[in-house]
């Protein structure tokens, strides 16, 4: 039998063969994601900087003429407004859900169900609720003795309807995330705080908020990114007036001549989302939770 000498460096590398199998198993999924997202994204970015095959900024130069700036402002207004509405409502739901009460199961079912409702269904339902003339919302308002509201009367009110309507489908997810954080806070913490004379507000600020801060930043990241991507809801509720970034992209995409404009706008949207993600991660410190 041949004498085997001490293993060389090469032999120690041999062990990674086992890892090769694992990497091979993960490869199809990762390749899928890269092939269907990174490549398309690069195509969009590349095309946005080219006109007739030449490197050019002309697409970007003409973007303002298609309503870029107002659409960015509108997108930001809708996103921030919707986020605030959702976080407030979600916090209320989560704080109710952690408390024991009769019918809590039915309650959580009712508030979670919209999570599964299609965005289009939600958009349609709210288009029935908010109508300038008639509609369900005005029906209630009139029944209560007030004057009917013209919901779609200005850019801001239009955007307001969109950001409010977005709450239905998306609050449940935020609520579930925050519920995860709240349910991990020990009740004895609240009890000892109230013995120390802390009122409800001070308990919320000093106990609840710090405990859900990391989860809140995760919710803000996830929802914020989706918020910048809302498309179906404004399409149904307000169409192309006022424009938000996504409807701007789609409007120009659907005409062949203005397609490069839509690519440039898409690149701008991508940049905004990246900046937002980095900001949330930096400020919220969600990074350590992403480990």
């Amino acid at each position: 039998m041949e004498v085997q000498e001490e293993p060389s460096i090469r032999d120690t590398f041999k062990m990674s063969r086992k890892y090769l199998i694992y990497i091979l198993m993960a490869a199809p999924a990762i390749a899928y994601v890269i092939g269907l997202s990174i490549f398309p994204a690069i195509t969009v970015i590349y095309d946005s900087f080219h006109v007739n095959g030449q490197l050019s900024l002309r697409n970007y130069a003409s973007l303002p003429g298609y309503g870029l700036y107002p659409s960015i402002v509108n997108t930001l207004i809708v996103s921030v407004g919707a986020l605030i509405i959702q976080v407030v409502l979600a916090l209320a739901i989560a704080m109710v859900m952690v408390k024991p009460f009769k019918g809590s199961k039915i309650f959580s079912t009712i508030v979670i169900i919209p999570f599964g409702v299609s965005t289009i269904v939600s958009a349609f339902a709210f288009s029935l609720i908010f109508q300038n003339v008639g509609g369900f919302a005005n029906g209630i308002i009139v029944a209560l003795g007030f004057k009917p509201v013209t919901w779609f009367s200005s850019t801001l009110s239009d955007l307001g309807v969109v950001m409010f309507s977005d709450f239905w489908k998306n609050t449940p997810l935020v609520a579930l995330i925050l519920y995860g954080g709240l349910s991990s806070v020990s009740p004895s913490l609240y009890e000892s705080a109230s013995m120390d004379g802390a009122g409800p507000l001070s308990r919320f600020v000093h106990i609840t908020l710090p405990n859900i801060a990391p989860l809140l930043s995760i919710a803000l990241l996830v929802r914020g990114v989706s918020e910048f991507n809302i498309f179906a809801l404004p399409l149904v509720l307000i169409g192309y007036h006022p424009l938000i970034l996504n409807t701007l992209i789609y409007e120009n995409y659907s005409t062949l001549a203005t397609r490069p404009i839509s690519y440039a706008a898409a690149t701008v949207l991508l940049a905004i989302i990246m900046v937002y993600s980095i900001l949330v991660l930096r400020i919220g410190g969600a990074k350590q939770y992403a480990q």
Binding site: Q4, P7, T12, K14, M15
Partner: peptide, 14 residues
């Protein structure tokens, strides 16, 4: 034991 059972590869030897 794990090397003997084949759960882990050995670096060298038989």
């Amino acid at each position: 034991l794990r090397v003997t059972a084949g759960i882990e590869d050995l670096t060298a030897g038989k």
